[in-house]
């Protein structure tokens, strides 16, 4: 269960050079653009775009293999469930019915359902590379500053920074506590009965939480003593300067975001692209 928070690696690509604030803004704009649209052509376009960026930022497949497996499992389960629950959902969205395959009872495959489900899978899938790019090319130090930059109150942004700072410590504590409890005879494997699993989990969680509560007190004292929360604003040591590249990136993202809205309003007349009428 060793997980590195962001496996951020220091290499020099145009994407790495962008400020964290820019990357966060672009990530949000593009994510909302694909979330809003149900136009498969637009979604394919964004997907292609994000794969190019993935290439540019020199992210290796090995870095993201695990994520891709998780996502695939999710997408397949979701696709099966959707079909089981609402085989006619596409028909009700697009208002026409072109049957492809008769299975049995109410389970018939239609072109409309196929389009709806394919669009949905692509829509989910296209968000993933965007998130991956953001996570793997942003220096964690810059993360809090960026959150503050897009309008999140700085205290909340700092809380996120504390999460990143103390997650490895807490992970190590957890490991220590769990080993110590095992040495006293705690059964951690699947052999334990259901009722005792709740209890066993508690034997580890309780010391973890209580030692953390002590820590909260000493950290908050340390922060008070160094003037945290004194002013309405604060600056950030690791904030990067905004440069030309940043303007270009934001401009591009705003453009794509606008496209998503404009296509819906003027071309499709709704969030859905309907080729059936």
């Amino acid at each position: 269960m060793k997980i590195k928070l962001f496996s951020y690696n220091v290499i020099d690509t145009p994407i790495h050079r962008l400020s964290g604030l820019t990357k966060l803004a672009c990530f949000l704009l593009l994510t909302f653009a694909v979330m809003f649209s149900y136009d498969i052509r637009f979604i394919l376009f964004v997907m292609l775009f994000s794969f190019i960026i993935l290439k540019v930022s020199k992210i290796k497949f090995s870095q993201i293999k695990l994520m891709i497996i998780y996502v695939l499992i999710f997408l397949i389960t979701n696709a099966i469930l959707t079909f089981l629950f609402e085989p006619e959902y596409g028909v009700s969205i697009y208002g026409t019915r072109h049957e492809v395959l008769r299975i049995f009872g109410r389970y018939n495959l239609t072109q409309e359902q196929l389009l709806y489900q394919t669009t949905k899978v692509l829509k989910y899938a296209s968000v993933i590379p965007l998130g991956i790019i953001f996570l793997l090319t942003t220096n964690p130090s810059e993360f809090a500053a960026s959150l503050n930059g897009v309008g999140i109150p700085y205290k909340v942004a700092y809380a996120v920074s504390l999460t990143l700072r103390y997650f490895p410590d807490i992970q190590r504590d957890y490991q220590n506590i769990s080993q110590a409890q095992q040495a006293r005879g705690l059964e951690m494997s699947k052999k334990a009965k259901f009722g005792s699993r709740f209890k066993n989990a508690l034997l580890i969680i309780i010391p973890l939480i209580f030692s953390t509560l002590d820590r909260i007190e000493s950290i908050s004292n340390a922060m008070d003593l160094r003037g945290f929360g004194k002013l309405k604003k604060r600056t950030w040591y690791s904030k990067k300067k905004i440069e030309t590249g940043d303007y270009v990136a934001i401009g591009l993202s705003v453009l794509i975001f606008a496209m998503s809205i404009l296509i819906s309003i003027f071309i499709n007349g709704s969030r859905f692209f309907n080729p059936f009428i």
Partner: peptide, 12 residues
């Protein structure tokens, strides 16, 4: 400040 620290470590 204590709430903020509790949020940070609690989230971890």
């Amino acid at each position: 400040t204590k709430t903020i620290v509790a949020i940070g470590l609690g989230a971890a």
